[in-house]
């Protein structure tokens, strides 16, 4: 079977992670999200919680410096650990689904990559976050704004492509219109057509 890598970028509250989980199950592929850091921590014999604090966060410009190509930004170093991990897995020929982590940019040279970005209507995202995180509407709204800002800054600091810009992905999909399960089916169908064409 040819290598298949599905990268799923997502707005906060769009259900992108859930779509990635269901898609991975449907396709019988391994899913990489935060668990990547758990594996990295295990491999390096270090504390996962210490690394997780800096996961998918942008580099703090004023508080960090770079000397001889070495940065003291943990956000930057931990992001690069994950990028190396993904490149290694992809180079070994593994097929997988990966959530976030600039994967559509990091793995753009791999032929088997299919990149997806999941967005959602703001009201649907507020409802989803209120339900899942047990928050009030205003709390959910500010959480969405905060997380999206962080994800955008994180992504754009590592990639020349803009976060969520439709021109950078194979599919951008509004999950609010179809719902999670239909979105999964639609992406799976697209993947199927793409793999047939190869």
């Amino acid at each position: 079977m040819d290598q298949l890598i599905v990268s799923i970028g997502r707005e906060y509250g769009s259900g992108g992670h859930e779509i990635a989980v269901k898609l991975a199950q449907k396709l019988g592929l391994k899913l990489y999200d935060r668990n990547m850091l758990e594996e990295i921590a295990k491999h390096k014999n270090v504390d996962y919680e210490e690394l997780a604090k800096y996961d998918e966060a942008p580099k703090k410009e004023i508080l960090t410096r770079t000397v001889r190509g070495l940065s003291n930004s943990h956000e930057y170093n931990i992001a690069n650990m994950q990028f190396e991990y993904l490149r290694k897995k992809a180079s070994e020929g593994e097929s997988f689904v990966v959530v976030g982590r600039c994967a559509e940019s990091v793995l753009k040279d791999f032929e088997g990559l299919i990149s997806v970005f999941i967005l959602g209507d703001i009201e649907c995202r507020i409802q989803r976050i209120s339900r899942v995180r047990n928050m009030s509407e205003s709390e959910a709204r500010s959480a969405i704004s905060r997380h999206d800002k962080t994800r955008k800054a994180y992504h754009n600091s590592h990639s020349s492509m803009k976060w969520g810009d439709a021109r950078n992905y194979d599919i951008t999909l509004n999950s609010s219109k179809l719902g999670i399960d239909d979105a999964v089916d639609l992406i799976a169908e697209y993947i199927n057509k793409r793999t047939v064409k190869r």
């Binding site: 990295i40 921590a41 390096k44 014999n45 270090v46 504390d47 210490e50 690394l51 604090k53 800096y54 410096r65 770079t66 000397v67 001889r68 070495l70 940065s71 003291n72 930004s73 943990h74 170093n77 931990i78 690069n80 650990m81």
Partner: peptide
């Protein structure tokens, strides 16, 4: 910067 970077890259932020 270098000391922190080496520690960070090895999983000790």
């Amino acid at each position: 910067v270098v000391g922190i970077a080496v520690a960070s890259k090895n999983g000790y932020p």
